[in-house]
Amino acid sequence: MIDLALLLLTAAGFACLCASVARHQPALFGRALPKRRARILKRAGWSMLALATMLACINFGSGYGLVEALGFASLGALAAMALLSRATRQNARR
């Protein structure tokens, strides 16, 4: 259960970070986002990653939790990347 939460949090966190980068916005939204919204996305992304790390440390203890949080961070980033890659390809087709 906690593992699923960690995966979702890190994936969502990295998706937000990805969406906050100006270069990726056309592929995801078809246009650039206003600076303010990008900043909110960035903060939300980092907060989710911090929350995931905290949850993991509370649940497993700080050493084990940190390792597990890093592991899930890699997996979550991979998921976010797959999402962006898909969006880019769909936009290219349109």
Binding site: C18, M81, S85
Partner: peptide, 22 residues
């Protein structure tokens, strides 16, 4: 950082670089 999420498949050398970087 900006290339962090890039994965362009089916584009020859560019794709290999993306896979390597990712």
């Amino acid at each position: 950082i900006t290339d962090y999420f890039m994965l362009r498949l089916g584009k020859g050398q560019r794709s290999w670089l993306d896979v390597h970087n990712a």
